[in-house]
């Protein structure tokens, strides 16, 4: 939120514009996000996957994990839309349920990691002092530890880790980078006048963080949340692909792992690994696009200056003043 200088070049919004009930800034921001084409595409793709996840039981045609009841390695046909696996499962039904698993895991990881990064990063950064020193130390240590090996190591201690275990492993290890970013931003608020004013008003630090600081960090928190969904989905697929955790759950990672073990590549059974592989790519792409959209709204410096509309250009018959630098 950039402060306007005394001689600001950008015109301010009119102080006495005939006001309809003014919208809170976050509502305006959300509207703007939905005007960004990138974000719209992102939300559309994500929306499709979310719908699949919600309605999975109605969309699936077979039991996703019935182990060998169907003819193995059948190419896509009218009965088995996406073909069958080498173990005799319907790929389409498995993919539908896997979507549900992956989206859920992504969301759960995002909730855990985002909450931790907000609580630890924002509160410690704002509070300063000993609390901050301790939290910051833990954050630094976590950041130094190599991510993937750590996750693999922890996971391998949990035999047959189910989805819940994977969610916690991913959630508890992925907050530090986001927390550090939030801490840095929260620290800048400590000496802002409106925060001092809140302290003068006698409000507690906790309340001040909730009502004064966090509303100013909505875009950053949202950004984290989106990246963490992405990370959760990818992390889950990664772990399962390595064969860590229970193979009994339908998930994109398990499907890839099974296709790898079943030599799908050698057998030419492309229908086995394309759906999960493509899905992971598409979801992560969608989430990244959404994040770009948010960035563009929350950071106006990324925007190109508006071009003169042709009508105005014609009317003014201007001598263009090209941009100049010393």
């Amino acid at each position: 939120m950039s402060r306007q200088d005394a001689n600001t070049m950008e015109p301010q919004s009119p102080p006495d514009a005939r006001s309809r009930a003014p919208k809170p800034q976050w509502l305006q921001a959300i509207r703007q996000v939905f005007k960004e084409p990138k974000a719209v595409i992102g939300f559309a793709i994500l929306g499709i996957f979310v719908i699949i996840a919600i309605f999975a039981p109605y969309l699936a045609r077979f039991d996703p994990m019935n182990e060998g009841a169907l003819p193995p390695l059948t190419p896509p046909n009218k009965t088995y839309w996406f073909g069958t696996t080498g173990y005799g499962d319907d790929v389409y039904s498995q993919w539908i349920y896997a979507t549900r698993t992956s989206i859920c895991i992504g969301l759960e990881v995002a909730v855990i990691a985002t909450s931790l990064s907000v609580i630890l990063g924002v509160y410690a950064g704002f509070k300063g002092g000993k609390v901050d020193a301790v939290v910051n130390w833990v954050t630094q240590v976590m950041l130094v530890l190599p991510g993937y090996p750590l996750i693999i190591m922890i996971s391998s201690y949990i035999p047959n880790a189910g989805s819940q275990a994977i969610v916690w492993i991913l959630g508890l290890t992925s907050w530090p980078a986001a927390a550090r970013m939030k801490r840095a931003q929260a620290m800048t608020f400590r000496t802002r006048d409106f925060i001092l004013a809140a302290r003068l008003g006698g409000f507690s630090d906790f309340r001040t963080v909730c009502t004064e600081v966090l509303p100013n960090m909505v875009s950053l928190v949202f950004n984290t949340f989106i990246s963490m969904i992405s990370w959760g989905i990818f992390g889950e697929a990664f772990l399962r692909f390595l064969g860590i955790g229970s193979t009994r759950t339908p998930s994109w990672g398990n499907m890839l792992n099974a296709s790898q073990n079943g030599n799908a590549m050698m057998e030419g059974a492309w229908w086995w690994f394309i759906p999960p592989g493509l899905s992971i790519t598409m979801v992560i792409l969608a989430l990244t696009l959404i994040n770009y959209g948010i960035d563009e709204v929350s950071n106006p410096r990324l925007k190109k200056p508006p071009k003169l509309s042709k009508a105005i250009r014609d009317k003014l018959r201007l001598q263009a003043a090209e941009e100049g630098a010393v």
């Binding site: 070049m9 200056p305 003169l308 263009a320 003043a321 941009e323």
Partner: peptide, 8 residues
């Protein structure tokens, strides 16, 4: 020295 978006 007018910035981008500014026109004479």
């Amino acid at each position: 020295l007018l910035g981008p978006g500014a026109y004479v």
